[in-house]
């Protein structure tokens, strides 16, 4: 079984980056007994299709707009979201749900779960998280890990970078580190 865990979001808009930080946190602090591809999807748009097509199981970590308290966490199977995409109503939303809709027409498509967290602030231009989201962060991460367990993938904790350090690294990327 090919499994991918993809963090989605725009790190430039505060809580919008939580999915990206969570995918990084998981790769830093967990290892698994089966192969899991952990991907910083950023603002992936329609390139998401490729993952829906090529994997058997895809777990997406993202923010979600539900009338609920910031930090509330939802685990949404794709069937709960299909039908929400309104291609005809908006001029373009090349996003998570729209790509689900398009790929649902394929004969084979990954089983997709979206683990969503209700954000507090996604309009401030700032690379950070609000304290509400920081507080809920570990529960968010744990839900992703549990979703993997439901697929028979067991995890082991290891000690890696903590959330604050991960955010700091995203806020200060350096070309030098890449060379």
């Amino acid at each position: 079984m090919k499994t991918a865990l993809i963090g989605i979001g725009n790190i430039l808009f505060k809580d919008e980056g939580v999915g990206v930080y969570a995918s990084k946190y998981i790769s830093e602090n967990f290892c698994f007994d089966k192969e899991v591809d952990i991907i910083d999807g950023g603002t992936l748009g329609f390139k998401l299709m490729r993952y829906y097509q090529e994997y058997d199981k895809v777990i997406i970590l993202d923010t979600v707009s539900i009338e609920d308290k910031p930090g509330s966490i939802y685990n949404l199977p794709s069937k709960a979201l299909l039908g929400l995409g309104s291609y005809r109503k908006t001029a373009h939303e090349v996003e998570v749900v729209e790509m689900l809709e398009i790929c649902s027409f394929l004969e084979k498509m990954a089983k997709v779960n979206i683990i969503g967290i209700v954000p507090k602030d996604i309009t401030s231009v700032e690379i950070d998280l609000t304290k509400e989201i920081k507080r809920a962060f570990l529960a968010f991460v744990n839900e992703a890990v549990r979703e993997l367990e439901r697929e028979g993938i067991n995890s082991f904790q290891k000690s890696g970078k903590d959330l604050d350090m991960i955010i700091r690294e995203y806020a200060n990327p350096s070309m030098e580190a890449l060379l």
Partner: peptide
């Protein structure tokens, strides 16, 4: 890039 659930009731999926 938020997932917009457009007001659909999704309470059963809350963790």
């Amino acid at each position: 890039h938020i997932v917009d659930t457009k007001g659909k009731s999704l309470g059963e999926f809350k963790v």
